[in-house]
Amino acid sequence: MASVTLNVNGKSVTRGVDARTLLVEFLREHMRLTGTHVGCDTTQCGCCTVHVNGEAMKSCTLLAVAVDGATITTIEGLAKGQDLHPMQAAFREHHGLQCGFCTPGMIMSAVDMVRRKGTDLDDKTIREELEGNICRCTGYHNIVKAIHYGAEAMGKTGTAAE
């Protein structure tokens, strides 16, 4: 057993876990934050993407002990109460989701994309940057659109600077 302390969505938590526990298992099973999904086991699909110290990472191939002490944001921590994050709102506004399974990872990746690439994102950049996130439902058309407008909205609302 190993003791892991994380700050998850603004709350500090300490748990004793099996040393092989993955970050995604820590979030889903120990904290019941089931918005972070597991869609593959080879770090390709991106359904498990969360922010670790502000950067998007795939939580299915990170040991919880390896990020001991880190600050984690999951999809559940993105909205402020009922006020959606602009990227969440953009996914709804532009029909950027269908079954909703890849969506949390998509949104977490998109927010990180804006942090790295700015708020004025062209389609080519968005498509390239989505390499690590697979969606089987939407054909990406509306996801690309949602991220474009979500990024723009993050710029306007100052969310991108946070």
């Binding site: 918005g35 999809i75 559940e76 993105l78 709102a89 996914f91 989701l97 909703g100």
Partner: peptide
């Protein structure tokens, strides 16, 4: 959509 974009879907 609200439940899916906020991580509250129940799969």
């Amino acid at each position: 959509d609200f439940r899916f974009i906020t991580g509250k879907g129940q799969f």
